[in-house]
Design a protein around this nucleic acid. Structure first.
Lengths: 162, 162
DNA sequence: GTTGGTGCAAAGAATTTGCATGCTT
DNA sequence: AAGCATGCAAATTCTTTGCACCAAC
């Protein structure tokens, strides 16, 4: 984790930006919640625990900066807010998402599944791909099993609830 | 086109909604601009030409209704506004998009390129896929040729989020 | 002492909602 | 008359901006 902060710090400094305490706190929050997909407001509330005096505008400004530096990706699942997702180290592609339409859970797929598809698109459409967004909407494994359990609502044996 | 309006009308009526003049005008605009990716404001301005008394709120309400009926898909390219895309007739998958980072043009890919990928995802992640969103960000053919022609220009069209 | 960064409040933009009125049945 | 649908304006929500102040080089 130290290592990643250092790396980001260098990245900032190379473009003559500073890693201020507020920016550091924001990056820390993102690192600690790498699997989540936090909105700016979410980040703000979490950063406030470390640095109570921070303002929401600073969080927005920091997230925008990190987005420009390609440290985070700004994503949108269609619920009206932007969410910020830390880029994985060494990832040369943006990961994919699975959004459950029932419980709202968002899982990530790290593998690159689009290699072949991108070759086809670049060739057939003469479009130079720089980035992609792939999100599947459907029903996650957890909700599928719950659904079948509820659907056959006879005396189904209850598993331990999470 | 008549045919498609009729179909949508039936779809509305089957759920006891009415095809009011405002709704009809809105659907017509969507049909006439099937290749575009209009924002609510865009639709509003175009509908106003047919039905000048319409209000923006009605357009929003109509688009939301059409979205629920799966007549249109609501999409978001990360520029802060929702866009509405008419579903193709008989399309059993949501088409893909190519967004040019230079000129902002949005092209569509109708072919389904994700069949194999979806099989893998359903198997490996036990996730039941209902829908998908796939967007490539990059440089379209037009801009690529322009770029090489005028490589030192200082143009820049709008696309970035304000 | 510039310069960049911050906090706060105000402004802006996109979308939603409350409500009185209007159509349709 | 009953109820959905509409237009308008006000309200909400998310995000950006203006500005005075602070800190670091």
């Amino acid at each position: 984790m130290e290592h990643r902060i250092e790396k980001i710090k260098k990245q900032l400094q190379s473009q003559s930006y500073k890693l201020t305490p507020q920016r550091e706190a924001t990056v820390l929050v993102l690192l600690e919640h790498e699997e989540d997909h936090l909105s700016a407001e979410d980040v703000y509330l979490l950063v406030k625990e470390k640095a109570p005096e921070i303002g929401l505008a600073t969080v927005y400004r920091t997230l925008e900066l990190l987005n420009e530096l390609e440290v985070v990706d700004k994503i949108n699942f269609g619920d009206g807010v932007s969410r910020y997702d830390l880029r994985k180290e060494g990832a040369n592609h943006f990961h994919h998402h699975l959004v459950c339409m029932e419980c709202g859970a968002v899982d990530e797929i790290q593998e690159d599944l689009l290699g072949d598809v991108e070759s086809i698109v670049e060739r057939d459409f003469q479009f130079k791909i720089k980035d992609h967004r792939l999100t599947f909407h459907g029903v996650c494994h957890r909700c599928q099993t719950e659904d079948t359990a509820a659907a056959s609502e006879t005396e189904e044996t209850e598993y331990s609830s999470k």
